[in-house]
Design a protein around this nucleic acid. Sequence first.
DNA 1: CGTGTGCTTGATATCAGTCAATGATTGTGG
DNA 2: CCACAATCATTGACTGATATCAAGCACACG
Lengths: 152, 152
Amino acid sequence: MLSDGRRQVVDFYLAGETFGFEVSRTHSFFAEAMVATSTRTHCLADNTGTQPELLGLALHGMLRAQEHILVIGRQTAMERVAGFLLDMSDRQGGLKHFDLPMSRLDIADYLGLTIETVSRVFAKLRASGLIKLRSIRCVEIIEKTALRGLCA
Amino acid sequence: MLSDGRRQVVDFYLAGETFGFEVSRTHSFFAEAMVATSTRTHCLADNTGTQPELLGLALHGMLRAQEHILVIGRQTAMERVAGFLLDMSDRQGGLKHFDLPMSRLDIADYLGLTIETVSRVFAKLRASGLIKLRSIRCVEIIEKTALRGLCA
DNA sequence: CGTGTGCTTGATATCAGTCAATGATTGTGG
DNA sequence: CCACAATCATTGACTGATATCAAGCACACG
């Protein structure tokens, strides 16, 4: 977050995913639970046996972060939202429909947009028949290929 | 890069810094040398002795990437450029003046802006007396505190 | 029911992008 | 050594995508 309240969501984590490793003793980020959640903590200095796994996680996190920099730095609102929906769909098993566990504000802060813009893009996608909004938090992807075409 | 040529520079690396680790066999990024450069390659599977060091580097890279997400997602052009100049200054030893090894296009693609916007912000900073442009690639920071105040 | 929160939609503003012209610097060949 | 071309940077005029401001809607909850 910035001092004046502007917020950036760095990533969303689904069940079973690991997060929160930081080098410095003073942490720069915080996490919020969107749904009922329980966590397991790991200790870095524990035993060296877990280190190789940790390296993979760190590298994966860095990759995701760097890819997200491209999204936020260079893509339009439409491209960001389309890519986000496909990512969420894939990460929940690629089913036809899936739930968004987070609010519009969280999505906006993740994509570097405002809630209004996110809402408008959703509306446009629905109007052009690419998605359906079964409920406010449940999305159904109708035209996956077309949606992919919007991601640049 | 995106298929249509839009480019995002993920980070700049100065002498002595390590870059290029990716998990997947198919790499997503590439590097370009801005100045005369020589590199040393490290092999991941080499020996486990280097692993703890690597973990630190990966975590550091992830931290930097995530902080950059905040910059690109939520800061104005002025804030981005001011922060960039301070970062470059610090990383080159915090001297009064320092060289920018990269072109305006590289800076723009790093900050998620266009060359024109970068140029205009430079002009504005110079006009308000916060920096001097000794040459096109050499910046002198006159009012460091004021510059810091612009970063939000 | 009323209230509150989150979402959508519309009207307008603004920051940064685009397009275009001009300047500065560097390198090349005559 | 100079003219020329090429590249990079600056500056201006205008446009446009997204933000901001504001109103209305819908669902959940007491």
